[in-house]
Design a protein around this nucleic acid. Structure first.
Length: 470
RNA sequence: GGUGAGGUAGCCAAGUGGUAAGGCCGGAGUCUGCAAAACUCCUAUACGCGGGUUCGAUUCCCGCCCUCACCUCCA
């Protein structure tokens, strides 16, 4: 199936395809590991994951690379404040990131390169840029990219249509505060750092280079690592919209100035997540992490569902009502699947079944990753499912799983049932006995008591189930 | 100010030049001692405002109002 995806460089929907017709090479800008990722970060990573899963479900092969930014101002500053080495600090947050990704059912990328593990590649790239006249060394030992040397600069973010650039490179990024213009000898305020010379605030974080001790600039790692694992030209590059400028613009400049080859052939940018109608920010206190979500009793799967409920190019408004809605919708799907499983019994479907009544899900995903329409198609699909025999039920499960699998919404695993304390069991037993004896007043009293302790009882004809209150 | 995205029923959210997916919420019925759960069914004169093009616009064009984002921290 032809897969259409909007390309933010050409500003049009284009067929997404591997240049070599074999494997789609996909690079994603990953997290800076200096703290827990927030749900906005995860919106982007989940979208990338769904894109990959959808392509794979439709028979495409994908090579997925997502980097880890484990050296920058934030990681250095924070690790110093905590009096930990940079490596120890970033390892801790990397582990946490991986745990969160697993909880959200994100497929691990095939390669997850860390910036600090690719310093030589970055130095090599910077050296080539100097040799070709695209970069210069300032008198403090830092190396800058000369924006004026790259005529295509601004093609991704339409810089020409914007106001003239002002400000100083690295100033907001520099813990030392505003810098003296003479010190840096910049050719242009738009020039950006490729290599930052060692500063006192960097502590022990530095590497030797032909330009003295220092560390890589913000953008160079992605150019170096994408080239290392995917080649000078690759098929698709993804990230949040905020990375369009300057990060991706600078990646293009560095890479294309160096190789004289196109960098990424297709750009995939996902819109931001809003919280309660506002931008997420620490000052508003709405920068939720996965732990915050779980503390509210929401499952990671529901978060994933909620983050897929809108189209990726549209800002999505996250509210607690939305996520409650997602939890309910997901529970409806789980129940439906359980019923199918009951009907199917031991019968299993052949491996290579199709999408069945869920083929519109595939069509929606292949049409610019329309997850919202895909979710709608899932619900329309379940109405059309034929489960009149174990065989058809088994086939329906297979096609449902295929559709939900493309969205990364695995329902197969049951919710772990919470352990029921003995006193709760005893109360429930007493209530059941009272009910059987038609002593309803006593039964209701005991039911209230259970409720007060956070449990609810669901009666059947021949017994009852106990469930914790949500 | 510049650039970009958007305003669809109570909420979230697709989509289309010919009268509008889906989810949540809500309601009814079945069941139940009553509930809850489950199952079945259902509702809603929803397309920001004003013009224009058209046989016909929510969908294209123009203007306006409002919201949000980006403009060197940012997924």
């Amino acid at each position: 199936m032809d897969f259409q995806l909007y390309d933010s460089l050409s500003r049009s929907a284009r067929p997404l395809a591997a240049a070599d017709d074999k494997e789609l090479r996909f690079y994603c800008c990953g997290p800076t590991v200096y703290g827990p990722a927030h749900i906005g970060n995860f919106r982007t990573f989940i979208l990338q994951d769904v894109l990959r899963r959808s392509l794979e479900a439709l028979g495409h092969k994908v090579r997925h690379v997502r980097n880890l930014t484990d050296v920058d101002d934030k990681t250095i500053r924070q690790s110093r404040e905590e009096k930990r080495s940079l490596a120890e600090f970033t390892a801790h947050w990397t582990k946490r990131f991986h745990e969160d990704c697993a909880a959200l059912n994100l497929l691990p990328p095939h390669v997850e390169p860390a910036a600090t593990a690719h310093i030589p590649q970055q130095i090599d790239l910077i050296g080539k840029l100097i040799d070709k006249g695209h970069a210069y060394r300032a008198n403090d030992g830092s190396v800058y990219f000369r924006v004026s040397s790259f005529s295509d600069y601004g093609k991704l973010s339409r810089l020409k249509d914007r106001e003239i650039l002002t400000g100083r490179p690295g100033s907001a990024d520099d813990a030392a505060g505003p810098v003296d213009a003479d010190e840096y000898e910049l050719d242009s305020a738009a020039d950006f750092a490729l290599w930052k010379s060692r500063k006192p605030d960097d502590g022990e974080v530095f590497w030797p280079s032909p330009w003295g001790e220092g560390r890589p600039g913000w953008h160079i790692e992605c150019s170096a690592m994408s080239m290392a694992y995917l080649g000078e030209t690759f098929d698709l590059h993804g990230g949040g919209v905020d990375l369009v400028f300057p990060h991706h613009e600078n990646e293009i400049a560095q890479s294309e100035a160096c190789t004289c080859q196109p960098f990424a052939r297709h750009w995939f940018h996902s819109a931001h997540l809003m919280v309660e109608g506002r931008k997420m920010s620490k000052s508003l206190g709405n920068l939720h992490t996965l732990d915050d979500i779980r503390a509210r009793g929401v499952s990671p799967a529901a978060l994933r569902y909620a983050l897929l409920s809108g189209h990726y190019r549209q800002p999505l408004n996250f509210t607690w009502e939305t996520i409650h809605s997602a939890e309910s919708a997901l529970e409806k799907l789980r129940k439906f699947r359980r019923q199918l499983a009951d009907s199917a019994g031991d019968t299993t479907a052949p491996e290579n079944g199709g999408w069945g009544s869920f083929s519109p899900v595939a069509a929606a995903l292949a049409d610019d990753l329309n997850t919202s329409a895909a979710l709608g198609a899932v619900f329309r699909g379940i109405r059309e499912v034929d489960a009149t025999s174990p065989e058809t039920a088994a086939a329906a499960i297979a096609s449902l799983d295929r559709a939900l699998g493309a969205l990364g919404l695995a329902l197969a695993e049951e919710k772990p049932s919470a352990a029921i304390p003995a006193d709760i069991t005893r109360l429930a037993e007493e209530r059941w006995a009272a009910k059987q004896a038609k002593n309803f007043a006593e039964a209701d009293r005991l039911r209230d008591q259970l409720k007060a302790q956070g449990w609810t009882t669901l009666d059947r004809k021949d017994g009852y189930d106990l469930e914790p209150l949500a």
